[in-house]
């Protein structure tokens, strides 16, 4: 089971600023370990973000994203108290969903 994400969501004027920190190895599949064996690719490949029950982002990521990545979004039309649900899935089928509420 993957480690939890850290989500920060805050209104700035009429825009909600959402930032999420994910815990993931994000292996590219190009690295070799000390024994010279290739470290298999292991990366987040799908991310979705729902705000207030509405999907605002559906994205695909690949190996160019760093380990423990941070993503930031600005969403117009959201309001304080809206629920933010972020979900990711990696290439090995591991997944994680976390929630936060937009703060004032």
């Amino acid at each position: 089971m993957a480690d939890p994400m850290k989500i920060r969501a805050q209104m700035k004027g009429d825009t909600a600023e959402i930032r999420v920190l994910m815990s993931h190895a994000m292996e590219t599949g190009q690295r070799k370990d000390n024994a010279g064996a290739t470290v298999p690719a292991h990366f987040i490949q799908a991310i979705t973000v729902d705000v207030g029950g509405k999907r605002v982002i559906q994205g695909q990521t690949s190996t160019s994203v760093s380990r423990n990545p941070v993503f930031g979004f600005k969403v117009k039309g959201a309001k304080v108290g809206d629920k933010v649900v972020i979900h990711w899935e990696d290439n090995k089928g591991d997944k994680r969903t976390d929630e936060a509420v937009i703060a004032a």
């Binding site: 825009t15 705000v51 207030g52 509405k54 605002v56 982002i57 994205g59 990521t61 160019s64 994203v65 760093s66 423990n68 990545p69 941070v70 993503f71 930031g72 979004f73 600005k74 969403v75 117009k76 039309g77 959201a78």
Partner: peptide
């Protein structure tokens, strides 16, 4: 209807 408009989906991959 929430006019949920993505102003910028700045996908800040933390260092890439």
């Amino acid at each position: 209807r929430l006019s949920t408009l993505m102003v910028a989906a700045v996908m800040t991959a933390s260092f890439a």
